[in-house]
Deep mutational scan, measured.
Amino acid sequence: MASQGTKRSYEQMETDGERQNATEIRASVGKMIDGIGRFYIQMCTELKLSDYEGRLIQNSLTIERMVLSAFDERRNKYLEEHPSAGKDPKKTGGPIYKRVDRKWMRELVLYDKEEIRRIWRQANNGDDATAGLTHMMIWHSNLNDTTYQRTRALVRTGMDPRMCSLMQGSTLPRRSGAAGAAVKGVGTMVMELIRMIKRGINDRNFWRGENGRKTRSAYERMCNILKGKFQTAAQRAMMDQVRESRNPGNAEIEDLIFLARSALILRGSVAHKSCLPACVYGPAVASGYDFEKEGYSLVGIDPFKLLQNSQVYSLIRPNENPAHKSQLVWMACNSAAFEDLRVLSFIRGTKVSPRGKLSTRGVQIASNENMDAMESSTLELRSRYWAIRTRSGGNTNQQRASAGQISVQPAFSVQRNLPFDKPTIMAAFTGNTEGRTSDMRAEIIRMMEGAKPEEMSFQGRGVFELSDERAANPIVPSFDMSNEGSYFFGDNAEEYDN
């Protein structure tokens, strides 16, 4: 993207840094990872977990959730003011799984939030270390993106479920800051804005008074975040219109849905970061690795190297396929839920299948599930090659597409044709070009129609051997075009429920 120079890199967003050079960025990201790792080690000690239990991804998720809940100030305040039966607002906890007599047992633990905050700050040299908290939120978000298709949420806001490739980060909490905003897809931002506008339509006082002023500035800020994701002048001009509207209503909703559809071809720039579970960072720190000293990046080879040398386990339900569970977590670790499966298959070195073909449910185990038949197995999170994460949407291309997802959002900077089903997408653009945004709409449609099938995206960008740390010898991959490109292809993934 041309304006790259004016933006802070995501590592800076990730670490609240002012302008830093590459070495400083690597050190501050490393410091953040160190903090998460030290916190995780301490929690495993508190909970008396064995090494194996500490490497269980379900335990990692519970521990991450506990610290996120302990620092969720708004919710904590709300819980104190609106006490609900049987919930102690000062405590947080969740299921911890232990191996007892050759069987997995679930144990519900409860801790004072104050105590968890103390352990977290102690692991982070006394700081609140917001960057580390956001990092864990993005890992949870990436896992949700890989596990669930947001059909219901899309339909509720009037969008087409086939636009799911635009929904990265749709389950990120509001408090995820600049680093969170960077990884949100165009569809996620559109959905947040539509929800806001709908509230304004239904509630006369939404934009009024002292609160209304705050609401208005939040609305304009979200519009600017979305505008910054678009790469064409016409899309940005249309966002200006939406932002400046005196009284946002149905016309703005129409414009936003139009823009979301246009992003299936004229893709937005959305950041991709490899955020790993805390149970990967903990053992690495415990083994003596100093992330701050060595430096770390979320968008280069580092996460690949770390996963190459990590042992992570997962509980497996009786009829689940461990290899499929591994694929789910591998995609989440690489922030690749909406990437082209052919690119992923090449990088991973084994075939990556669409969601609907995987015999696996989510990673988390519900409290009512029976533990008797639970097994555990090693997650295979290694890769054959590594590639640089991208934040450009890439230019655009036609490809055989599917009944489910009709476009992709690249996660890796790797040369390819970008699949999208042009006739299906263009069919949504018939007729409606009147109104105050008509010239911009016409211009956007013209650009979409001009998108050429034979153009290559990320020209000359390749993948790298894991021994090639400096990215000196790019390998331009070859793809098996007979395979499906979309992950949520004609899909039956479970729906995400809060």
Rank of each mutant, 00 (worst) to 15 (best):
R26V: 10
I194A: 14
M448T: 12
G393I: 10
L172F: 01
Q20N: 07
I257M: 04
A332D: 14
Q459V: 01
F39I: 14
A263L: 09
Y281F: 08
E192L: 08
E18L: 00
D421K: 15
I265L: 02
G435C: 11
Y78R: 03
D497L: 15
S297K: 10
N21M: 00
G37D: 10
G228C: 06
A153M: 07
R152F: 08
G5K: 09
L154M: 01
G169K: 05
K227I: 04
E192K: 02
D112E: 04
E375A: 12
A451G: 13
G485Q: 04
E81C: 09
E455W: 12
I253D: 08
G282Y: 08
M196V: 12
N21S: 02
K87P: 03
V299M: 08
N319D: 08
E449H: 08
R384H: 05
R65E: 10
N370V: 15
L328C: 10
L259E: 08
S376Y: 15
D72P: 03
I347L: 00
T134Q: 06
E24F: 05
M371R: 07
G158N: 14
Y219E: 10
L154E: 06
V476D: 12
A427P: 05
L341A: 12
E434Y: 04
L61Y: 00
P423G: 14
R391G: 14
L166W: 10
T360C: 06
A85E: 06
M222N: 07
K90H: 02
W120H: 06
R436A: 09
Q168M: 04
H324E: 10
S367M: 02
A233Y: 12
C164P: 02
E252R: 11
E24P: 06
T424C: 13
Q399W: 14
G187C: 07
M374K: 07
N59F: 14
T62F: 09
Y219I: 10
I425M: 05
L418Q: 13
G35A: 04
K87G: 12
A471D: 10
A373K: 15
P248S: 04
V280H: 12
E495L: 04
E53S: 08
G212Y: 03
Q398N: 01
M191Q: 08
S310K: 14
K229W: 11
G394E: 09
F464V: 00
K48E: 12
E434L: 00
